[in-house]
Amino acid sequence: MVFLNDDGLTEAVQEAGAVELLLVRHGESEGNVAATEARLARAEVIDVPARDPDVNLSDTGQDQARALGTALSRIAEEFCPDTVVSSPYARALQTAEIAVQTAGWSLKVHTDERLRDRELGILDRLTRLGVETRYPDEAERRLWLGKLYYRPPGGESWADVALRLRSVLDELNNLGRGHRVMLVCHDAVILLVRYVLEGMSEREILDLAAGTTVLNASITRYVRPSGAGPWTLESFNVADHLTEQGVTVTEHAGDASVHPQ
């Protein structure tokens, strides 16, 4: 908002917004399991049971979502999220709904397609070996450009995903001070939220991606007590709540070859 002060000078005032942001990766999905099995078998195609938006949680993923909900139930009422927004993809929405129900929160889970996973276009369902075998020119182009800027035909680059996330994050500035928000989404989305909120360079986000797997049902937390200005990363990729409850912690990483070569 812009206004004139007593001296007639123009000043910009930022409206207060959300004070806390929780980012949750969905629990283990049937697609995660199928992708890992395909890589280990050196298969070219991942035998997923449905199109990407419709892939459900695995049994382990459902256990992880319940354990997440139990952990969330321990948050003091005054610090609980007042808004929960999920990717519309089944694995994320199921995680959100199970967690909210287990936590005992009387909140409706909203969905926002801007939180969906990255779209892979013609490379969908292919392992790295499958891409190299069936689309060698694309494999070479992906290596040349690196993960931030490579866009597969019919799909998205990480930069494309970051663009849609910027509008989501900007809306957090217009909620009114005091709001606490939980977003349930995907590993690439969580990494790219960090890229946007922390003003990372290409090198920094790719270094992070190369060395970090965002764990299923993990929690990442940002705070800004004033409700305005930059966010502070309080914790990243925490899955202690799974271990404490005897639930399996799962790592399902994407292609670790992310830097331009």
Rank of each mutant, 00 (worst) to 15 (best):
A217C: 11
A217F: 04
L115K: 03
Y149E: 14
L172E: 03
E44A: 08
P88D: 13
I205V: 15
T127G: 09
L22R: 08
D207F: 10
E77P: 10
R114W: 08
L148V: 14
T60D: 10
L183T: 05
G227K: 06
W105I: 11
R51D: 14
N5M: 10
V184R: 03
L120H: 10
I205E: 12
R74Q: 14
D52R: 05
E251R: 09
D170T: 08
E77L: 15
L169H: 03
L192N: 04
C185D: 02
L191K: 10
L242S: 07
F79A: 15
E138Q: 10
L21S: 12
L172I: 05
H259W: 03
H252G: 01
A16K: 10
L172V: 02
T220M: 00
D240R: 09
V168A: 06
L206C: 12
G227S: 11
E30W: 01
E251A: 10
L107H: 07
H186W: 01
L169Y: 02
V13N: 01
P152D: 15
V193R: 01
G178K: 03
T250L: 08
E28T: 05
T95F: 04
A253S: 12
A159S: 13
D137E: 09
S201M: 14
R224L: 13
A76Q: 13
A16S: 09
A96R: 00
S58E: 11
Y150A: 09
L129K: 12
H241M: 05
T111I: 02
L145Y: 00
R180C: 04
G121E: 06
V161I: 05
V109C: 01
T83R: 14
S87L: 05
R66T: 11
L115Y: 06
G17K: 03
S87N: 03
E113A: 12
H26I: 05
R128V: 14
A50Y: 12
T83A: 14
A76Y: 05
A18S: 11
R134L: 12
A209Y: 15
S73M: 08
V131G: 02
H26P: 01
D207S: 14
L115S: 07
Y149C: 09
D117I: 04
V238C: 01
E119H: 06
L23D: 03
I46R: 06
T248M: 06
T232W: 14
R125I: 01
G31W: 02
V48P: 01
N5F: 07
R203E: 06
R142G: 07
D255F: 06
G121I: 07
V100A: 01
H110E: 13
S157H: 00
Q62A: 13
K108I: 13
G146Y: 05
Q64R: 06
D52F: 04
Q14I: 03
N216T: 12
D7G: 13
N216Y: 07
A12I: 08
G8I: 02
E198I: 05
L120M: 13
